[in-house]
Design a protein around this nucleic acid. Structure first.
Lengths: 189, 189
DNA sequence: GGATAATATAGGACTATACATATATTATAT
DNA sequence: ATATAATATATGTATAGTCCTATATTATCC
C-alpha cells in the first residue's frame, strides 16, 4: 500500500487532517500521480496510527467538528526514508477506453468518433486542471530541491495528457477515413 | 469490472481457454492496455459462466489437463455491444515513482539518479516489448477495421512510453545540475 | 423555507487485484 | 537424478479501492 507512503510524504510538508489531505493534496496538488478516496484516507490514517507511523493532536472546535491533526512519528520518518530508496514497479496499465477501441470494430464510425470525443474532452479537462497549477520556473537559483522535483512530476502529467490529446486527434482522423463495418455475418454465434 | 468486458472482447476473436487468455492475450497482445492476474481470469470466467455471459466446451485431453474452451453466449454478445457504447471514465493515476520523486528532495542526487535510471530501464523494456509486436501498416486499403483499431491502441502504448523516456532523460539532466540537499535540520520531529 | 455546500470523521458492503500455493502430467535442461 | 518449464485449472488469503450512507453544525443559495 503506497497510499500510506504518499500520506507520510504529505505530512512531512505540514501536519494535516484527513480532510485537508483529501481536499488540499489528493484532489489538487498530487492528483496527477495519486488519487485517493476520502474513506480510504481516513481508514489508512487509522491504521498508520495503530502501526505507530503517525500521531495526531485533537483540536477541539466549537462550531465545527473536531480535527485530528496528524504528523509523523520517528518510525514514520524512518519508514518514509526507507521506502523512498526502494525501486518502485511500473504502474499496471488498465484502460477501459482502449478495450473499447480494440474491440469496437463492429461499431459505426459515428459511435467510435463519439467515444473518442468523450475521451478527448475528459483529457482536455485534466490537462486544463494541471495547467492551472502555477509551476515554479526552472533555472531559478533560489528554487529549492522540493519545488524542482515537484515541477518535474507536474511536467510529466502535462506531457502525458498532451500525448493523449495528440493521439486522440489522430484516432479521430483515422476513424473518419475508415470504410464502415460490414456487420452482415455478426454476431456469429 | 471491465476485466469481464476485455474477456468478452477477446473471446469474440476466437473461443479460448483461461490459459490461452492469459498467455496469448493479457500477457502479450493487450498487455499495453489491460493486465490481468491468472487467478483473477479463472475466477472471472467462472462468474461470467454463472451469469450466462459465456459457455464452455470441455476438451478432454489424455496427456494434458483438460481444457475449458470458452465462447460468448447471446447474452454475452448483447452485454459486450452495450458496454462498447458506454462512455468510460479515465483511468485513475497512481504512480509510486512520482510519489518518490515528489517527496525525495532529502535524498542525494546520486540516489535520485539511480531511481530515475531504474524507471528508465523498466520503461525502455516495456517500449521494446511493444515495438516487437508487428504492427500492420496504415494506408493499406485491405487493412480491416479490427486491425486498424488495434494498431491505434498500440500506437498509444508506444507514444506513452516515449513520453516517459523523454521525461526521464530530462529528469536526469535536471537532477544532475541540482545543488545537493541541506539536511542539517531534517528530520524535524 | 428548503436544498445544497463546506467542514470534519467514520463505517458497511462490495468489487477488484495480488500473491501464494495446490494438483497433475509431460518435456526439457543441468 | 533433480529441477524447472510448459500446459491447465483452481482455491485461500490478504490488500486495495469504490460507493454509499451516517453524523453534526454552519453558511449560503434559490
Amino acid at each position: 500500500m503506497s497510499l500510506s507512503h504518499a500520506i507520510l510524504g504529505l505530512l512531512t510538508v505540514m501536519p494535516m487532517t484527513g480532510y485537508e489531505l483529501k481536499t488540499q493534496a489528493f484532489d489538487t496538488t498530487v492528483a496527477h500521480f495519486w488519487q485517493a478516496d476520502q474513506s480510504q484516507i481516513y481508514r489508512t490514517l487509522s491504521k498508520m496510527e495503530e502501526d505507530g507511523l503517525v500521531t495526531y493532536e485533537l483540536e477541539v472546535q466549537a462550531d465545527r467538528p473536531n480535527r485530528k491533526v496528524y504528523r509523523l512519528t520517528a518510525a514514520g520518518w524512518a519508514e518514509l526514508e526507507r521506502w523512498l530508496r526502494t525501486e518502485q514497479p511500473l504502474p499496471t496499465n488498465r484502460e477501459p477506453f482502449l478495450v473499447q477501441l480494440f474491440f469496437g470494430w463492429r461499431l459505426t464510425n459515428e459511435t467510435l468518433l463519439e467515444l473518442v470525443a468523450g475521451q478527448r474532452a475528459a483529457h482536455a479537462e485534466r490537462l486544463a486542471t494541471y495547467e492551472r497549477i502555477p509551476m515554479p520556473p526552472l533555472g531559478d537559483p533560489s528554487l529549492d530541491r522540493m519545488r524542482t522535483l515537484w515541477r518535474l512530476t507536474l511536467e510529466l502529467g502535462i506531457a502525458i495528457e498532451r500525448t493523449y490529446l495528440d493521439w486522440l486527434d489522430r484516432c479521430a482522423a483515422v476513424i473518419a477515413d475508415l470504410p464502415e463495418a460490414d456487420n452482415e455475418q455478426d454476431p456469429q454465434l
